[in-house]
């Protein structure tokens, strides 16, 4: 009984997170400006990290934890680099 509650709620949570990733992807594709796309990418990274944590609970394996940590790190570095590029990349100083 308890197991099926847990598994079903995890499936629902993953569907919700998947929808959230779709929203972020939509913003990433449609823009309208470069900063909106980067914001979408950052949200996509955070949502993907949460998705990995929920996969970890579903499979009962702690391996997904490392993957989530790494995707969080990569998301941070990528967004900072892109934001820096927006500030300095296209304007002649």
């Amino acid at each position: 009984m308890s197991l099926s509650i847990l598994m079903w709620s995890l499936v629902i949570a993953q569907v919700l997170l998947g929808l959230a990733m779709c929203c972020a992807t939509f913003r990433l594709i449609t823009g309208p400006r470069a900063q909106d796309r980067i914001l979408g990418l950052d949200t996509l990274y955070v949502n993907a990290m949460l998705m990995l944590v929920s996969f970890g609970i579903r499979t009962g394996s702690t391996l997904y934890f490392e993957a989530a940590l790494i995707i969080g790190l990569l998301g941070f570095v990528a967004t900072v680099a892109l934001a820096k590029f927006l500030m300095r990349g296209e304007v002649i100083e």
Partner: peptide, 19 residues
């Protein structure tokens, strides 16, 4: 665990809808 995970994913979805 079900409550925590569902609440967290629902709030995340609301945030992304806000986007």
């Amino acid at each position: 665990v079900a409550l925590c995970v569902l609440a967290g994913s629902a709030v995340t979805l609301i945030g992304s809808i806000g986007l």
